[in-house]
């Protein structure tokens, strides 16, 4: 008897599930959505995507699964998404690296490979030096670099990485010559800075937070337009009279050709997820900034970034 009632419960549940989509005329989503993160687990990108996935899951009512597909500076994962069916079930976390791939000859990816669902974060770069360095402002450092071309060794997170380009942008803007030292990621660069093997780093603010709090490092300037809420006392480059804005960012996208109706559903879910307190708290704790841009604004922003980076990269000697 009991068995029978369980069975009938299951059957009626099935009936409900079968009926629901029919009623909603096949409303998206019917099944789980996958977000591909093109980097290894544990990094800022991965964590961003996981918290967003959790928020989107609550909105969409279907599981949102995060899969890591690292390799090729994000190229492996992003290319896979760009090639997959444009049905909204396979999405990609899109890092700033997307707009650099073509110029660096890493892949054929470009902004037009994707439909954008929205931008969620900005990753500010912080010009950081050892706490006992003889520079107290960014202008001190630039002055020293001007007097001593090639003497200032600036650590970055890898050849052609976003923070390498950040230092190059500053270099080009101020007509100075740095000696760029690439490391495998931002953390080793920060370690080398603490050991005073190099003079400065231009990596993301979150990476230097521990060193700053420990009194070993100091930030001279933040490269974003507005001050970083995590370091409210640190001036921006623009405030210091250097007309340069440079920022890493994170967005989400679907393959080219995804229907507008599906994108709208995803866009609404992403907006909700990006405005949750949990997301804001996490992003701030990792030294990043919450910056939501809707699909149209995001597309425009990414296209502008594409032009900006291509221009910068064509002036640098990279990948040749």
């Amino acid at each position: 008897m009991k068995k029978l009632s369980v069975l009938s419960a299951v059957m009626s549940a099935c009936a409900v599930f079968a009926a629901a989509p029919a009623a909603a005329q096949g409303a998206f989503p019917q099944r789980e959505v996958t977000i591909v993160v093109p980097f290894n687990p544990g990094g800022a990108s991965d964590m961003t995507a996981r918290i967003i996935a959790k928020g989107m899951e609550a909105e969409l009512g279907k599981p949102v699964v995060v899969v890591n597909k690292a390799g090729g500076s994000g190229g492996v994962g992003m290319s896979q998404v760009a090639r997959s069916a444009p049905d909204g079930y396979t999405l990609s976390y899109i890092p700033v690296e997307l707009v650099m791939h073509k110029a660096l000859k890493l892949s054929d990816l470009e902004p037009s490979s994707f439909e954008f669902i929205g931008q969620t974060t900005m990753v500010p770069s912080a010009v950081t030096v050892p706490a006992d360095a003889p520079f107290n402002t960014i202008n001190d450092l630039i002055k020293y670099a001007k007097a001593n071309p090639g003497k200032v060794r600036v650590g970055n997170s890898g050849a052609g990485s976003i923070w390498h380009i950040a230092a190059s942008a500053l270099e080009g803007n101020q007509k100075v010559t740095f000696n760029h030292i690439p490391f495998e990621g931002a953390a080793p660069a920060v370690t080398a800075l603490m050991g005073k093997h190099i003079e400065a780093v231009t990596v993301n603010a979150g990476e230097v937070k521990a060193g700053v709090d420990a009194g070993k490092l100091k930030i001279l300037a933040i490269m974003t337009k507005e001050r970083d809420p995590a370091f409210p006392k640190v001036p921006t480059l623009i405030e210091s009279g250097i007309n340069l804005e440079f920022v890493g960012w994170g967005a989400f996208g679907a393959p080219k050709g995804t229907p507008k109706a599906v994108l709208d559903v995803l866009g609404a879910a992403l907006k909700k997820a990006a405005s949750s307190d949990e997301f804001k708290q996490f992003i701030t704790s990792r030294g990043m900034v919450v910056k939501y841009r809707n699909p149209e604004e995001c597309k425009e922003f990414v296209n502008n970034q594409y032009v900006f980076f291509n221009d910068l990269l064509s002036k640098m000697e990279l990948g040749k």
Partner: peptide, 13 residues
């Protein structure tokens, strides 16, 4: 990263 997420910064302090 986990330390920082939990509001703790490793170091002498």
């Amino acid at each position: 990263g986990a330390f920082i997420m939990h509001g703790l910064t490793p170091g002498p302090i």
